[in-house]
Design a protein around this nucleic acid. Structure first.
Lengths: 365, 365
DNA sequence: GTGAAAGCGCTAACAG
DNA sequence: CTGTTAGCGCTTTCAC
């Protein structure tokens, strides 16, 4: 943020500067000087002055006045973090746009904006609490710090929160524990003895829940500690590095749960380069937010992140809030599960005796 | 679009309805009734009335008035089609947000909106020509029909066009022919005898250019016609279906250029299921807009779409337009090339004699 | 506790 | 051809 500069230039100043009326300036700026039959020389002087003075139109003023056809504009926003993977934002955006298109009437138009904050620092986002910006927002990809802020802050507009539970707000969530538990079960059913989870250092509400549920389920069912790999970030590169190091340290891995799709992609590459076959040597379960999961080789089994489903719930909720209708404080979405090749471990386990790495992993040591 | 309904409710009507002044209504609606010490009963009645009448605040009015601290708001938008792949939009959005963050000052805030139109039907987009919405826009993912419209239309705000050349507008483009030509060269250098291109039915300026340049280069260098596969859409499924059918018809393919990354993904799967090895049997070149190209198996060689580079050029251009500074009518971006495994055809071609499909393909028949 | 009233920056109807 | 002026819907100061 740079310091403030001088106050905005108005058409009044331009008019004064050129020595004409504001009406003349207005019409020139709106390219309506032809109808107004303004002298070409004047038009030119007005344009020059506007440029020279650094005129920037005030859209609020323009809108307020020209809204003569009684078109009201509804301003919506999606609030997300810079660090978040874009696909979820893209999905939300797409769903919102489609809804908006349907909701649009001759006298109501919508604008969908995106606001980005730095993960964990939503409170520093300027203008967040201003009541003069948005009619409603969808908030997503927050970190726990952000959630805490949102719980205290009184946002001056209706909001739907995606993927987090925040007291007093309308939230759409993945059914808690589901993803972590099902992923653990899938790995166990695949015969894994050394199930391991990989996650990024920054844990959101959702990823923390997945991690916890996975670990708990593994402990309960196998009486062992699950392996845990912490990646610096969510990028495949980082996941690959973390997994590689984990394996290099001799930790056994024959089943991998990636709390996020991008982590699974990174894992695939390392496993391939280590000569570990999927699913024969290592079964992999990902979170299927990624539309390409089924195009991986082998196709990735996913306990699908509920993104799409969550978005589908959130958008109508936002419109209900906008209309002032009552909404449930919380909507749980149970994500679909896609069993694909990455966990379809053959019963006969043909490689068990041949591959030393696989055997070591499978014995849990 | 539904038909119009009654005109918007204002605080004046609420005030009238409840029998209080607009000042009272305003303070209640802004949750400032405590400072104003309004009677709880009145507060409640105002709230009820607002709800009952279906009050929707007019942000323009609010903003105009409360803009006392001289904060001016700059409204920017990214205009894209519903049908476009979201990654490009995501990149543009991200780049724009980061720029906006830097540009923000205490007295200037930015809002970045996204507007979506249906491919080829940008002219039907309501409010596109309204001067009271945006200070500037970035337009992308247009089809030729849209480009024609944009060339005629006089948009009432500065615009930067991504990936298309439109007379009289500031455009950022992939260096023409580069992607198609380089891709053709890479396949030829890989020893392909039956290079084939796959593209979607809808051709944008960019994809058409890639297709043309590819075909021309193949013809010039090999004196043969390139194979052409037309996919119904850009989705991997559709690409897979198209390629499968092409192969089923006995058309030889030993080199494939996918004008779009998602097409390459679909192709990978089909080739795998047909038992064709990449790159031994079929070399594949994609367009590397996809951040995951290097995580494919084998890693995909890409003549990178210039998306990232284009966006990096476009954002500063938009700000220069906003400041009224002169801009070049056209900026060409030469995309980087990433040679990866999908074209690293081994010199010895160990499979040439063994795989009948491969041999057939390689002889060009 | 509450109302009256002055504009925010702009457009457009109207009067020269 | 050009200027004057009345608001658009809202917030806020000031007066009661």
């Amino acid at each position: 943020m740079k310091p403030a500069s001088r106050p905005p230039v108005t058409i009044y100043e331009i008019a004064h500067h050129v020595g004409v009326s504001t009406a003349a300036v207005s019409s020139v700026l709106a390219n309506r000087h032809v109808e107004r039959r303004i002298a070409p020389a004047t038009v030119e002087r007005i344009r020059q002055a506007a440029h020279a003075l650094g005129y920037v139109p005030n859209m609020a003023g323009r809108r307020l006045r020209s809204q003569r056809a009684a078109t009201r504009q509804i301003d919506l926003a999606i609030l997300t973090s810079f660090e978040a993977p874009l696909p979820l934002v893209g999905q939300a955006l797409h769903a919102l746009q489609r809804a908006v298109e349907v909701q649009s009437t001759a006298d109501t138009r919508y604008a969908v904006a995106i606001e980005m904050f730095h993960a964990g620092r939503i409170r520093e986002k300027a203008g967040l609490l201003d009541a003069d910006r948005y009619h409603g927002v969808i908030i997503t990809n927050t970190l726990p710090e952000d959630d805490r802020f949102l719980a205290e802050a009184s946002l001056p507009y209706p909001a739907v929160i995606l993927g987090r539970r925040i007291a007093g707000r309308c939230c759409v969530l993945e059914a808690p524990e589901f993803v972590g538990r099902r992923s653990a079960e899938i790995l166990i059913e695949s015969g894994c003895r050394a199930p391991t989870v990989i996650h990024g250092r920054l844990l959101t509400h959702t990823t923390a829940d997945r991690l916890d549920a996975f670990c708990r389920t593994i402990r309960e069912r196998t009486r062992r500690e699950p392996g845990v790999i912490v990646s610096d970030g969510l990028h495949p590169h980082q996941a690959a590095a973390a997994l590689e190091q984990h394996c290099a340290h001799g930790h056994p891995v024959d089943g991998l749960f990636a709390v996020t799709d991008s982590l699974a992609i990174g894992a695939y590459r390392v496993l391939r380069s280590l000569g570990r076959r999927i699913p024969a040597d290592v079964a992999v379960v990902g979170v299927g937010d990624h539309e390409l999961a089924e195009f991986f080789d082998p196709a990735l089994t996913t306990v699908a992140g509920a993104n799409e489903a969550m978005v589908a719930e959130a958008v109508p909720l936002l419109f209900r809030l906008l209309r002032g209708e009552p909404v449930p404080p919380e909507v749980l979405v149970v994500p679909p599960v896609f069993l694909r090749e990455s966990t379809r471990r053959p019963r006969s386990q043909p490689s068990a005796g041949k591959d030393p790495a696989a055997r070591r992993a499978r014995t849990g040591r």
